[in-house]
Design a protein around this nucleic acid. Structure first.
Lengths: 198, 198
DNA sequence: ACTATCTTTCAGTACTTCTTGAATACTCTG
DNA sequence: CAGAGTATTCAAGAAGTACTGAAAGATAGT
């Protein structure tokens, strides 16, 4: 796949494309890869590609720009742009005297990452932590009775839950740090981490 | 959804289930949640559930145990167990004098996390970093020619690529730390990080 | 109020992924 | 080595997701 893309671009260059076309090819390379990555992380490929496009060009684009560039339908673009806005990693924006709306990506990757991390923590990790606590509560001596609570299997499960709780709690904490220290602070976090390690 | 599960379990308790059944209900609660979470992270729900089952019970189980417990077909269980083994987060294992094979989950969550992080880095982040470098190379003055290389749009894209490269590089580094410090070391990493932060 | 331009929605379709179950392969044991 | 018990594979079908295009909904200008 990559090979195909590469050789297309390479061939094109030799055939003497305009600089604009070359730039476009290079951007497409990035866009595709980003889309592929998104797909494996549970983000729909098209949405990831649209975001990659807005990010990599660094320019505000309108619906038709995106449609033309990525060959997708108006409806799809509309829904995906809305979703990206909901996530908060692109901004709608309006040009005086122009009818259509433009969209542009946040430019700071650390900030985008913070936003996404916060949201995924809230949506996916918090509920798990809650469930773990609930399970622990249900496995307590009060809930089960003394005899049952001493059962080997119960003890094992309790142990596993405790391990998982610790893990989730620490992970959550790290996420929180990333979130509250967004932007400038984040770099600090990372520098601290990297220096402190062998 | 949760409410349904909860109230089922609660009702059952009142009807006087055996301790084994109660334990089972509680484990199921965890298993479902874990499955849901997996799904949003690009891991197939069933696979996540099988892993959760092996993890939470802490006991070796055979194919039929899993089939019966989660109501899934033999073929599906077989394939999912293999995939989990490939990931390296569960172990196949053979009991003397018994014909069938058993499976058990690693017990250390930090270790499992390391394993998964390493693999996803390799499969998903490394290729992106490589693509970014390739794009940068193609945008260099040598590749584009002097005039084109000074173009505003080219500069913008170069800037975006640089930002992304930094981000990916740092993230990769963190992942690497997690991986090489697996197990005991990991806790240290985390403690360092958490203490160093406000 | 009408029109031109742009956006959103959504039913239907295309595509992808997951699951099953039956066929096949493997592996012990007598 | 026959056959019982188990495991694996894989084609077909089911379920789930994503995408389109056309129609309806907005909004701004006249």
């Amino acid at each position: 796949m990559t090979t195909l893309v590469e050789s297309d671009a390479a061939a094109a260059r030799k055939r003497g494309l305009t600089p604009e076309q070359k730039l476009r090819d290079i951007q497409d390379l990035f866009i595709r890869r980003w889309g592929e990555m998104g797909a494996t992380w549970g983000i729909n490929r098209t949405m990831a590609e649209i975001h990659a496009l807005l990010f990599i060009t660094g320019k505000p684009l309108c619906t038709d720009d995106v449609m033309e560039r990525l060959n997708i339908s108006r409806g799809n673009v509309s829904m995906s742009l809305r979703a990206l806005c909901d996530w908060g990693i692109i901004r709608r924006f309006h040009r005086r005297g122009e009818r259509r709306e433009y969209f542009e990506s946040l430019s700071d990757i650390w900030e985008m990452f913070s936003i996404i991390a916060a949201e995924r923590k809230r949506r996916e990790m918090d509920p798990v932590l809650e469930t773990i606590k609930q399970c622990q509560q249900m496995l307590s001596e009060q809930s089960l009775g003394k005899a049952a609570a001493r059962d080997e299997d119960v003890k094992l499960t309790r142990q596993r839950l405790a391990g998982m709780e610790e893990f989730m709690a620490v992970t959550n904490k790290i996420f929180e740090q990333f979130v509250t220290n967004a932007k400038s602070g984040l770099n600090r976090v990372v520098r601290v981490l990297l220096k402190a390690l062998p």
